[in-house]
Simulated assay, not measured.
Amino acid sequence: MYEPNVVGDWQECDDEHAGLRVRVHGLEKAEPPRGRDDAAEGLTYFRFRVTVENRTTAHFGIHLEDGQLDVRVGADGEAAFLDWRNSQFIEGFDVYPLRRVTAVLYAAADDASLSQVDIQVQLKVDEDWTDRYLWSGGIDLHESAIGVGARSDTPLDILAAQVTSFLRKEAGPGSTG
């Protein structure tokens, strides 16, 4: 079963890209360095990072532009505005063994939707495409323990309860958590 990553987790690439790993991290509210885009009027800006690490003995040319990212927010998965003017993409950078490269990206969305953010990334490595990988998280979430049968009060609790419910349904009848 395919499971999304949690923002901050590393995702190991498969097959011909084995040894590369990707991470979406640093999800936080932040104003862009070159000023707000007019298209983002009334929206709240946030920033995140995408880091690629090479754990092989060969070097790879990494490419990550705006068309290779999809940022969705809220329960309905509405598209966020990706500010390409303020974002720092990875454009054909050679990542040598045991080295990393990081893109810093700015996006904007309705403030009420930022408790649930999904970021999908598909890298181009040399001339090949990696699989698409998904990270889920939120802004201003505070971790708390969730008891079985407890009422979900925060967005993190709601997301955790949804994931738990989904996994139980996938496991089938008769399985216990």
Results as ranks from 00 to 15, higher is better:
13 C>I: 09
31 E>N: 12
160 A>N: 09
52 V>P: 03
146 I>C: 02
138 G>I: 02
142 H>F: 06
61 G>R: 12
110 D>R: 14
50 V>A: 06
159 L>P: 05
67 G>P: 06
15 D>L: 15
119 I>T: 05
31 E>R: 01
126 D>C: 00
8 G>C: 07
20 L>E: 06
70 D>R: 14
170 E>R: 12
4 P>W: 12
23 R>Y: 00
54 N>L: 09
114 L>D: 05
84 W>G: 06
66 D>Y: 11
49 R>E: 15
17 H>D: 12
33 P>C: 03
161 A>M: 11
144 S>F: 01
17 H>G: 07
108 A>V: 01
70 D>T: 12
162 Q>D: 04
3 E>W: 08
127 E>N: 15
97 P>H: 12
28 E>C: 14
27 L>R: 03
169 K>Q: 10
72 R>C: 02
64 L>W: 02
39 A>E: 15
99 R>F: 08
162 Q>N: 08
62 I>A: 00
153 D>V: 01
62 I>C: 06
141 L>E: 07
97 P>M: 07
145 A>K: 09
153 D>P: 03
80 A>Q: 05
35 G>L: 01
43 L>T: 01
96 Y>P: 07
92 G>C: 10
42 G>M: 04
70 D>N: 13
122 Q>W: 00
150 A>N: 00
132 R>C: 05
151 R>K: 10
28 E>F: 13
112 A>Q: 14
9 D>N: 11
144 S>V: 05
119 I>E: 07
77 G>D: 05
136 S>F: 08
107 A>M: 04
9 D>A: 06
104 V>L: 13
128 D>K: 03
129 W>Q: 14
39 A>V: 14
19 G>T: 02
23 R>S: 06
93 F>A: 08
47 R>I: 02
98 L>Y: 12
25 H>I: 05
103 A>H: 01
5 N>D: 12
43 L>E: 07
132 R>D: 10
47 R>F: 02
65 E>P: 06
53 E>C: 08
152 S>T: 04
96 Y>I: 12
134 L>P: 05
49 R>W: 13
30 A>W: 04
85 R>A: 10
20 L>C: 04
2 Y>A: 04
87 S>Q: 02
165 S>D: 09
87 S>T: 10
163 V>G: 02
12 E>I: 08
89 F>Y: 10
82 L>W: 06
85 R>D: 10
113 S>D: 15
88 Q>I: 14
41 E>Q: 09
2 Y>E: 13
51 T>M: 14
81 F>V: 06
33 P>K: 13
105 L>N: 08
109 A>E: 00
31 E>C: 01
29 K>N: 06
22 V>Y: 05
20 L>Y: 09
21 R>Q: 14
38 D>I: 03
143 E>D: 07
11 Q>N: 15
34 R>C: 11
57 T>P: 01
28 E>K: 15
60 F>I: 03
156 L>E: 12
9 D>W: 03
158 I>D: 11
102 T>Q: 02
90 I>S: 01
79 A>S: 15
158 I>W: 04
117 V>Y: 00
150 A>H: 03
137 G>L: 03
123 L>H: 02
75 A>E: 14
3 E>F: 05
132 R>S: 15
174 G>H: 11
176 T>Q: 15
155 P>H: 01
124 K>P: 04
142 H>T: 13
142 H>E: 11
98 L>I: 03
50 V>D: 01
3 E>I: 09
129 W>K: 10
